[in-house]
Write a protein that binds this DNA or RNA. Structure first.
Lengths: 260, 260
DNA sequence: GCGCAGACCG
DNA sequence: CGGTCTGCGC
């Protein structure tokens, strides 16, 4: 079973490329596709296009910002898109149960700049999310948590750690926030399989960063311990990122294969 | 010698289609190309692309609105782009002398709605322009005046005169304004050759008007009497209008051939 | 319906 | 740098 996480930076702008990629490059080998930054309300999400390709979708989305979806070739057994009073109205989370596994799709806040309002929002969001997890789930359950976490965990996950040490996504408080979340009971599947490998998932649009491989690893596929023995491989697929037309997302998709 | 007038509705948005058309459809048979609605300042106008194709260009343009240019395979002998205090700062006129003929490129005001501020601006603009012509030119000179005049001269020039009788471009005061200008000494070359033919040059983007041929004739090539005996043909080229991608202008180019 | 501009977000 | 939205012009 292959699960993919991709921040598409607008489903509208990426629809054409996404379906081309799914068909031509992936031959529809993705079983569960988790998207972030849809930037549209649910009524514009292309449910029908996915249905035609054999995917059932759920989405938790809003106009202009944020928005996450889960599309699955396997039946979706349960879905949580209402997180009650834990969060404000930003659509950043979506959970589906598929084949008995909880799929948590996450679009963490960006944070803007150190010390600003959005920076503290990000840190608090991580805290709230961890508290919600603690109250509603257990690390003994089979969970795959994927998404854009907007944090590069270690220096190896940044192309120039010294240059970017005060940049958003690399600062100690942010790393601490994500690590606390992981320590609840997750394993970073990519790092588990490739302890030394440098592999980015995001490259700035500015200055053609993709062509110089100046990026960061801020998209992840995490799983709980009950699933780690079934993990077969994790890869970042550069195909949809290394193009000029149609314009790609600034993120590349990350795909994990589990022996399920 | 072939002269073409085309409201491109943004030179930026139309550049690709324009050069494709010039090369593939026209085989560079256009000697003088007069464009309207450039919507960019002169520093963005593609002078170099035209130069590579053998055209020398002059432009009178501004940000966002209006803007006219003349591109010529024949040498441009003189150019007038400063009309002193006759007009405000809207860039709607450009005159070049080519082979001893004065080429006047016009982008007349649209007028918005009857009775509004822009409506009176349009009528006054026509008056001012005629006064300027009277002061600076003579109908005995060889003049070709082309452009988007935003007026359909007669009912035959409108797809549904009854439905559109209160619409901008068809109202008596507007027609009167254009007719006064023509009566100074111009001949409507298309109507001269085809007294009965209905041929539009503009179709609304809304409702796919081009596919139902619901348009108006608002773009013209006029000439003074000294040139009328050299007129060979006038045509409206639908090739660049009847496409879906890249998006066409709402106007089609009109081309006149003179035996010069 | 399709341009552009300016503002905001990332 | 590239997405969206709003406002405006045609």
């Amino acid at each position: 079973m292959k699960i993919c996480s991709w921040n598409v930076n607008s489903i509208r702008a990426r629809k054409e490329l996404l379906f081309k990629w799914l068909e031509e490059k992936r031959k529809y080998d993705i079983d569960i596709l988790c998207l972030q930054e849809l930037k549209v309300e649910e009524d514009i999400f292309p449910f029908n296009d996915f249905k035609e390709k054999g995917y059932e979708c759920v989405a938790n989305a809003q106009k202009r910002y944020n928005g996450v979806s889960i599309c699955s070739k396997l039946p979706i057994e349960e879905t949580i898109k209402d997180f009650g009073s834990f969060f404000d109205n930003q659509k950043r989370l979506l959970i589906s149960k598929i084949k008995g596994i909880y799929i948590i799709n996450v679009y963490a806040p960006h944070g803007d700049l150190r010390g600003g309002e959005k920076y503290y929002y990000k840190l608090e969001w991580y805290e709230k999310f961890l508290n919600w997890l603690k109250e509603n789930f257990s690390p003994d359950l089979p969970i795959i948590m994927v998404g854009d976490f907007n944090v590069a965990l270690e220096d190896i996950d940044v192309y120039d750690p010294e240059l970017l040490k005060d940049s958003i996504g690399t600062m100690p408080e942010e790393r601490e926030a994500l690590k606390k979340l992981i320590n609840w009971g997750f394993i970073d599947t990519f790092r588990y399989l490739y302890p030394e490998k440098q592999q980015f998932t995001w490259w700035d649009y500015i200055g053609g960063a993709i062509w110089k491989n100046e990026g960061m690893r801020i998209d992840y596929i995490f799983c709980t311990k009950p699933l780690i023995e079934k993990l077969k491989d994790v890869e970042v697929d550069l195909w949809p990122r290394r193009r000029r037309k149609p314009t790609p997302s600034d993120h590349a998709p990350i795909i994990a294969e589990f022996d399920i």
